[in-house]
Every structure is written in structure tokens, then in C-alpha cells.
């Protein structure tokens, strides 16, 4: 469960990226955040993962107040989140398999069940035949799917994606969205930021719209 209450975020340069944002997302729900570029979508997602801290207001994720979480507890918050961010941060010095393995190594999974999980995640994003490939040889859509696989491999209860379909053509974009829907169907809470209004066309999900840092109703 994610809930924002009167959240305000002012960046150090004095810019107010979010103003008085309140909403709640029940666990198992799926929602889209839309808005023009610069509306504050990325900022909102960063607050959930404690990459940025709110200036005021409270943010509750899985029962924890993220805004006041001490830094030693942040890693354990993030292990319950699947994060797909804009600058993908794929590690190009290792194989596709090893990229997906990283979160499991970090949370201390044993090697054998890790390998099974990595293959399951790669299978879900249809990259199983590329597990030994170098990420540099993947297409844009495949790289994006690699990031999704890395986000879901530790089976998080919440999946957060920032513009996961940007710079993909329409077919690939729909493909990725279908994947998120299928994760949501097995109980994962999904929150996706996008400025791509085409994705909204046939959306049955909740949609939050940000305008200059404010949530439009």
C-alpha cells in the first residue's frame, strides 16, 4: 500500500516540484501517473523509493513512513520495491543473466534458487534465450525488458516504473504495458509514470494527473 498525505517537495534550488499531493493506492491496485514533462512524475516516484525526501507531509509505503526512515533502513524498504527508472543503469560489463542476478546477490539468496528465479524473471519478459548475451547487443525494447526483469526478480510487492515505454515504438510499448498488467493480475501493486497519452486510450486503471506539481482531480 502507498499513501501520500499533503506531500510537498521543494528541491534545494527552491523549486517546488510537488505541492500538497495526497492520494492512496491500495495493495494490488494498478495506477498510472500522467502529466507533461516537468510536472513532477519522477519526483513523486523518487519519494516512494526514498531517493528523495519530502519537504513536508507523510509518505507511507507498506506501513513504513518513508519520509522519516533512517538511512540504515532504506535498503530494506527498496528490497520490497521493484524499480524501473528512466536512465536504465544497465551494467554493461556483465551478461544479461548477471544483471538480473544482482538484486538476489544483494539480498543474500543462495546461488541455486537464485538461478531459477533469474530464469523465471527472464522468461516473463521473454529474454530467456538472451541470458548469456551482453546487454549492449540488445535492442532498446529488450534493454527495457531487462530492466523490468531486474525489478521483478526479487518478487517485490510493489512495482514502480518511470516512463517505461518512452523511446519505444507503439508495439513494444503495448507489449511492456501488457507485462505490467499481468504482474498486477498476480497481486503486485503497480505504479507507472508516463507522458504517453496513447497508453491511456484503453486504460481501465486509475489515472492520476499531475499539473505543475499539483494533483488534478
Amino acid at each position: 500500500m502507498i499513501s501520500f498525505s499533503q506531500v510537498h517537495k521543494r528541491y534545494p534550488n527552491g523549486f517546488d516540484a510537488l505541492k500538497n499531493v495526497s492520494f492512496a493506492l491500495e495493495s494490488g491496485e494498478m495506477a498510472l501517473i500522467t502529466g507533461h514533462s516537468g510536472a513532477g512524475k519522477t519526483t513523486l516516484l523518487k519519494l516512494i523509493a526514498a531517493i528523495e525526501r519530502p519537504t513536508s507531509g507523510s509518505i507511507i509505503v507498506n506501513g513504513q513512513n518513508v519520509g522519516t526512515l533512517r538511512s540504515g533502513a532504506i535498503p530494506f524498504l527498496r528490497r520490497n520495491l521493484g524499480l524501473v527508472f528512466q536512465d536504465q543503469k544497465i551494467l554493461f560489463d556483465r551478461s544479461v543473466f548477471d544483471n538480473v542476478l544482482l538484486p538476489l546477490q544483494i539480498s543474500g539468496f543462495d546461488a541455486r534458487s537464485s538461478a531459477a528465479r533469474v530464469r523465471a524473471a527472464l522468461d516473463k519478459v521473454r529474454l530467456l534465450d538472451k541470458e548469456k548475451a551482453r546487454p549492449i547487443t540488445l535492442s532498446g525494447g529488450e534493454q527495457q525488458r531487462l530492466c523490468v526483469a531486474r525489478a521483478i526478480v526479487s518478487r517485490p510487492s510493489i512495482l514502480i516504473a518511470d516512463e517505461p515505454t518512452s523511446n519505444l515504438d507503439a508495439d513494444y510499448a503495448r507489449d511492456i504495458m501488457d507485462m505490467f498488467k499481468s504482474f498486477n493480475q498476480v497481486g503486485v501493486t503497480v505504479l507507472i509514470a508516463t507522458h504517453d497519452s496513447e497508453l491511456l486510450g484503453n486504460a481501465q486503471q486509475r489515472v492520476f494527473t499531475l499539473r505543475q506539481g499539483e494533483l488534478a482531480t
Binding site: P75, R78, I106
Partner: peptide, 8 residues
């Protein structure tokens, strides 16, 4: 990336 996926 490690910090993003929860490395202490």
C-alpha cells in the same frame, strides 16, 4: 544500481 536494489 546496487543501492537502488537495496544494497546496504
Amino acid at each position: 544500481v546496487s543501492k537502488l536494489v537495496g544494497a546496504t
